[in-house]
Design a protein around this nucleic acid. Structure first.
Length: 118
DNA sequence: TTTCTTACA
DNA sequence: TGTAAGGA
C-alpha cells in the first residue's frame, strides 16, 4: 500500500510517516516512481512505535528496540534477552528526568511562596 | 490525483 | 510537525 493508505489505516500523518522512516523506524520499499510501498507489517510497526513513544522512549531507542518486540502497541512483549535490561535503563533515565522536573517545580514553588499573596 | 523532496513566518 | 513550492 502507498503512504495515503497508511495515513488512513494508522491515523499518522504523511509527514510523520516519512519522519519515522528517516529515523530508521520504518523501511518501506520503493516503486520505480519513488513512491513508498508499505506492508501490513508496517501498520503493526506504527502501532508499536506509537506505544513506545507514549512510554517516553526516544526514536533512537525505539529503532533499537523495535525488532525485539512482539504483539501490538497495547500489549508488547520483549523477545530479545538484553531488551529488558535496555528498558530498565530507559526507566532509570525517565526517573531522573522526573526528579529534575520536581526540583525545578520546587524552585518555582519557593519563588511563588515568597511573593505577594504567595 | 497522489506522492516526492526541500525548506520555512 | 504543519504547510507551501515545484515536479513527476
Amino acid at each position: 500500500m502507498r503512504i495515503g493508505d497508511m495515513v488512513r489505516r494508522t491515523g499518522v500523518s504523511e509527514r510523520l510517516l516519512r519522519y519515522y522512516e528517516e529515523q530508521g523506524l520504518l523501511t518501506p520499499s520503493r516503486l520505480p516512481s519513488g513512491y513508498r510501498v508499505y506492508s501490513e507489517a508496517d501498520v503493526v510497526t506504527v502501532r508499536r512505535i506509537r506505544g513506545l513513544l507514549a512510554a517516553g522512549l526516544t526514536t533512537a531507542v525505539i529503532a533499537r528496540v523495535l525488532p525485539c518486540l512482539e504483539g501490538d502497541g497495547a500489549h508488547m512483549v520483549p523477545v530479545c534477552p538484553d531488551l529488558v535490561a535496555e528498558l530498565r535503563g530507559e526507566r532509570a533515565r525517565i526517573t531522573s528526568a522526573i526528579d529534575e522536573l520536581r526540583a525545578a517545580r520546587d524552585v518555582l514553588d519557593a519563588v511563588i511562596a515568597a511573593g505577594p499573596r504567595g
